[in-house]
Computed example of a mutant assay.
Amino acid sequence: MVTCVEGHISAATDYCDVCGTPMSARPVSTPVAEPTAVVPAPTAAKECPACGAPVVGRFCEDCGHDSALPAPPSGPSASTVQWTAVIDADRAYYDRVQAREGPDADTVAFPSYFPQRRITLQGEEFLIGKHSRSQGVTPVIDLSVPPADAGVSRVHAVVRIVGDGLELTDVGSTNGTSLNASDDLLPPNVATPLRSGDRVHVGAWTTITFVLS
């Protein structure tokens, strides 16, 4: 007794008694398909939460928003406008402080170099001051970045978004806060409305201009 290539038991040795397959036939091998290489799909672009531009990596190429940071607020309660704080060393303001012999005027020098800084305001309330780990002070508008203005208090003033506008409140700073080249200091703990383009003067030479961006 022999077994044909199909697996049948046959008494005949030339052809299978069951299926008739020649006993000399060899099983036909079935070609095995080569595995197909898996090509990763390209990373889909997502929308920048700050400006809406398409973003593939971490940083938006249009506005520079870091996707690792919290997204700007959205929804019915969020402001419909975007504010930017522009920080400058203001020589004209410094000269006025010197002329009126403001606090520490004779000991604070005007910086020889101060690159303009721009801070996009995200949220509803922003502290102006100087960072202090020991005191737990983490201002959004941090004026401790060198060269730091010695006349700015750790907790100097607070800016709040109210509707489509801003309000500024000096929270009892040592040297006070003024607006738009005025020498009159704002009363502490009293909210003052701000418009786009208003200049806030703090310390001995720092001016912060708030603009719609």
Rank of each mutant, 00 (worst) to 15 (best):
T3M: 00
T3R: 02
T3F: 01
C4V: 05
V5P: 01
E6K: 10
G7F: 02
H8M: 07
I9M: 01
A11K: 10
A12L: 03
T13P: 06
D14C: 07
V18D: 04
C19W: 06
C19N: 05
G20L: 12
T21V: 08
T21W: 00
T21N: 00
S24I: 15
S24Y: 13
R26V: 02
V28A: 03
V28G: 01
S29R: 00
T30L: 07
P31W: 04
V32K: 09
A33I: 10
E34M: 10
E34P: 04
T36E: 14
T36K: 08
V39D: 12
P40R: 09
A41D: 14
A41T: 13
T43W: 08
A44Q: 15
K46I: 05
K46Y: 02
P49E: 01
A50S: 14
A50D: 04
C51L: 00
G52Y: 07
A53I: 00
P54Q: 07
V55G: 07
V56I: 15
R58V: 13
D62M: 13
D62G: 08
C63T: 10
H65I: 00
H65E: 06
D66S: 03
D66E: 06
L69Y: 02
P70E: 07
P70S: 04
P72L: 01
S77L: 15
A78C: 11
A78R: 10
S79A: 11
T80D: 14
V81C: 08
Q82T: 12
Q82Y: 04
W83D: 02
T84M: 13
T84I: 07
T84A: 12
A85C: 08
A85V: 09
A89I: 11
A89K: 05
D90L: 09
D90G: 05
R91S: 09
Y94Q: 06
E101T: 10
E101F: 09
E101Q: 15
E101C: 11
G102L: 11
P103H: 11
P103C: 10
P103G: 09
D106M: 02
T107L: 15
V108P: 02
V108K: 11
P111F: 14
P111N: 12
Y113N: 13
P115D: 14
P115Y: 06
R117T: 03
R118P: 08
I119M: 03
I119D: 00
T120C: 11
Q122E: 11
Q122C: 06
E124D: 14
E124Q: 15
E125L: 12
E125Y: 08
L127T: 06
L127D: 02
L127S: 07
G129H: 12
H131S: 14
R133T: 15
Q135F: 15
G136T: 15
P139A: 06
P139E: 11
